[in-house]
C-alpha cells in the first residue's frame, strides 16, 4: 500500500537489551541473580560471565573459580557433586 507520503529520518537512537541464557535465575554459589553479577563485580556483562559445567549447572565464572581453588583433592559441581568439567 502506498500513501505517497515521504519520510526522511534525520537521526535515531538504538536501544539494545540482552539477557544471559540460563537454566536458573540465581547463581547457586553467591545466590545473586545471573542478570546481575557476582559479588566482586559491579557491572554485569562480559567481564563477569556465566559458565556451564558438563553437568549443565551454571555459575558466575568468578564464583565457580573461587570454589574450585578451595578444592585440592576433587573438583566437584557444588550442586550435583559430579566431577566439574567446563562445558565447551
Amino acid at each position: 500500500m502506498s500513501t505517497g507520503l515521504k519520510v526522511k529520518i534525520k537521526s535515531w537512537n538504538g536501544v539494545g537489551f540482552w539477557k544471559w541464557m540460563t537454566n536458573d535465575t540465581d547463581c547457586g554459589i553467591c545466590r545473586l541473580p545471573f542478570d546481575g553479577c557476582c559479588p566482586d563485580c559491579r557491572i554485569p556483562g562480559d567481564d563477569c560471565p556465566i559458565v556451564s559445567g558438563q553437568c549443565r549447572h551454571q555459575f558466575h565464572m568468578h564464583c565457580i573459580l573461587k570454589w574450585l581453588q578451595t578444592q585440592q583433592m576433587k573438583q566437584q559441581c557444588p550442586m550435583c557433586r559430579r566431577d566439574w568439567q567446563f562445558s565447551d
Binding site: G28, I29, R31, C63, C77, P78, M79
Partner: peptide, 9 residues
C-alpha cells in the same frame, strides 16, 4: 560422606 559444597546454606 558428602562434604560441604557452596550450594548448601
Amino acid at each position: 560422606g558428602p562434604q560441604w559444597a557452596p550450594a548448601q546454606n
